[in-house]
Amino acid sequence: MSTIRTLLVDDEVLARLALRQALAPHPDVEIVGECGNAAEAMQAMAALAPDLMFLDIRMPGLDGFMLLHELKPDALPMVVFATAYGEHALRAFDADALDYILKPIDQARFDQALARVRRHWGARQAPGPGAPAAKAAVPAQRISVRVGEHMRVVATEAIDWIEADGNYVHIHVGAQAYLHRETLSGLLATLDPARFLRIHRGTLVNVERIREIHPLFQGNAEVVLHDGTRLNLSRRFRAHARRALGIA
Score class of each variant (00 low, 15 high):
A140C: 08
P77Y: 12
T3A: 14
M53R: 03
G86I: 13
P139H: 10
V154T: 06
Y168I: 08
H200N: 04
A189P: 01
R209V: 09
F81M: 01
A239F: 07
H240E: 15
N232Y: 04
M45W: 05
L62P: 08
R235S: 04
T203C: 05
Q176I: 06
A131S: 14
C35T: 06
L231K: 05
K103Q: 04
V29P: 03
P127T: 01
A108Y: 11
D63V: 08
E70Q: 15
A123T: 08
Q218D: 06
A155L: 08
R236M: 05
L19M: 15
T229I: 11
L17Q: 15
L55W: 12
H226R: 15
D10A: 07
P127L: 11
S2W: 06
V153G: 12
D165N: 15
L98V: 10
L67D: 03
F65D: 04
A44W: 09
E12W: 07
R209G: 01
A177Q: 12
D74K: 14
D74M: 13
A75C: 13
A126T: 02
L216C: 12
A189G: 08
Q218A: 07
L184R: 02
V29M: 01
E70G: 05
P27K: 10
E182R: 12
L71I: 15
H180V: 07
P104T: 08
V80S: 00
P129D: 04
L62D: 13
H120S: 13
D56Y: 03
T156N: 03
L48C: 01
L68E: 05
L62R: 01
V80K: 07
L14T: 15
L102F: 05
R235H: 07
G202N: 06
G36F: 06
N37W: 07
P129M: 02
R236G: 06
A49M: 10
R195S: 10
T156L: 04
S234V: 01
V207F: 00
P129W: 05
A194Y: 02
A221E: 00
E182F: 05
E212Y: 00
L184M: 11
R152G: 02
G61M: 03
R242I: 09
I247D: 09
R20Y: 05
